[in-house]
Design a binder for these strands. Structure first.
Lengths: 326, 326
DNA sequence: GTGAAAGCGCTAACAT
DNA sequence: ATGTTAGCGCTTTCAC
């Protein structure tokens, strides 16, 4: 099968009887070319099936009109919302989005940041696992917006964990809980640290005892270990690092015949797909992931160089939390 | 903040005291350059933080080392597996993957196929909504591999629906069901058509009555309408276009106090994230989406031009299906 | 084995 | 308003 050679700007120029620069302008600065000529050029281009070659365009301008989104785990539905939001915002702005999976690996994240650099105009890095100085160094080369991670000097979009964790604690306290266990995720997780810090502050204010256990894997697979530990210690309310872990915990508790929420209340973070139809439906702190994804892309495009955008969160109370059985 | 200018091949050549062509060769044809020179060049390049510019490379060669994946709906977890598999296969092969959402729109799919064309070396188009001739036309310009869609002349990766649907019908028949209702998805859906065709054949062979209703939206939102219709007609077993719809149906049945599976059995397709922890856990035909994604990318890279790869499916029997209450 | 030089398709001065 | 021309960073003949 022989593929047709793509029409170039030169082909269009020749067919339209104008210079290549006119064709170029007709596409990039329509107002800077006579209306009639523009019409004509555009029509000829269309007939020839001409589509500008972004690689060639990138060479002259240095801008690729492409943005990269780095996520730690493509299979985690939490990031689906972010991807969707980012993709929409990029598409709206006429940019192409490249999505890459860092597989929770700082090395791979670092590698992508350098190898993709010449190919893109900037990065949205979600839940970065990189140390602050590595991020700042990368930011000296490329435009970077952080998502659910913040470090001084870099623009970031984060969930408002301060208010969010307070909502969680108030909810549990109002149900009569006086102590809670935080089932923590990876030690290096920035959002995990913020969640725990917020919970602690809120607990202190509201007279609730809080302890942190873990780390547990922030996946369904982390559930059994976390659930067993909570059970062994007689916890009556657990707050999990994220929904994946929380759902894993729920499943393990069901296996072991433990009643939720009568025996133990379970709360998660993220409100991922599935949190409302697992059993029992999960009480969780919802983040506006679509908005976060599109906000991050927006910052990237507007060339923001600093500042933290905090997005509101919302506690979704479902059946996994309730008053402790006395 | 002034960003450092990226080192170019010229910088490396100058610093290493060789010609640019030697630097180029050191990267692209390591064996065609003296080992010592190569070492030296590579070391200098590393010191300068040189990373080849893919856009420039693309101009000379015409290959961008970038592949595009088009999906109808990024928020559908079914496609998460495909994205993951495709991304892994692309990364393994040193390619970059671009993911775009067609939003179930043939027009947008068409548009992406042409506008992205010069930017990528080929497309994986998942669950294409385009008519056969539009696909063939696109394939004359770009390299295309279809996923869960097939049309003569184009390479494709599909699930083995023939065997899969038979497993579904055998399962229901073995439980004592003598009739089933297929709650169909979008009319234009190729996989929907194959699923229905397979169900019909299997039903004919096994003496089961089958009727098709719909179309319903293949989303959670499609559930209520589909469930209500099934209920009104007294269906005892429904097979849904996909898991999203099936879970929507499940939720609606729960709302209406209908017992699953005693009153009605529900079966889905895809085994998406959540299918095993919704309530009751959903019996569904699992497709190997990760494998499908990576297989499609593999075909793209190996420049396959035709042939259908059928991937095995597996029925996951869970609690949503059972014998009808007599 | 290595260098010199000609493009790849496009944009952006600079002319006209 | 439009044409001319010089690159952008890299690969690739073609010489040496």
């Amino acid at each position: 099968m022989t593929r047709e050679r793509r029409a170039t700007i030169t082909d269009v120029a020749r067919a339209a009887g104008v210079a290549t620069s006119t064709v170029s302008r007709a596409f990039t600065r329509p107002q800077r070319v006579n209306a009639a000529t523009r019409e004509h050029v555009l029509r000829v281009a269309d007939e020839l099936g001409y589509v500008p070659n972004p690689a060639a365009r990138a060479m002259g301008t240095g801008r690729t009109q492409t943005l990269a989104l780095l996520v730690p785990d493509l299979t985690n539905p939490f990031f689906s919302g972010i991807i969707t939001g980012a993709e929409q915002a990029a598409a709206r702005a006429g940019r192409t989005l490249v999505v890459a999976d860092t597989q929770e690996s700082p090395e791979r994240e670092q590698h992508l940041l350098t190898s993709l650099d010449p190919a893109v105009d900037g990065f949205v890095v979600a839940a970065s696992r990189l140390p602050d100085d590595a991020l700042r160094e990368a930011a000296a080369r490329s435009r970077i917006v952080l998502l659910n991670r913040a470090t001084p000097g870099l623009p970031a979009v984060v969930a408002d964990y301060e208010s969010g964790t307070r909502q969680v604690v108030e909810h549990l306290a109002s149900l009569g809980h006086r102590e809670l266990v935080f089932l923590g995720g990876p030690v290096g997780s920035w959002s995990g640290a913020r969640r725990w810090a917020g919970l602690q502050r809120a607990c202190a204010d509201l007279g609730v005892q809080a302890v942190r256990w873990g780390p547990y894997s922030p996946t369904l697979a982390g559930g059994p270990g976390a659930a067993d530990a909570a059970l062994a210690a007689g916890a009556r309310a657990v707050v999990c690092h994220n929904d994946m872990l929380a759902i894993g915990v729920l499943r393990r508790l069901a296996e072991r015949g433990v009643a939720v929420p009568a025996d133990i209340s379970v709360v998660g973070f993220d409100d991922i797909f599935g949190a409302d139809f697992c059993h029992p439906p999960l009480t969780t702190l919802a983040e506006r992931t679509r908005d976060a994804g599109s906000a991050a892309v927006g910052l990237l495009i507007s060339a923001e160089t600093d500042g933290v955008t905090a997005l509101p969160t919302e506690l979704r109370v479902r059946a996994s939390s309730g008053p402790p059985r006395s």
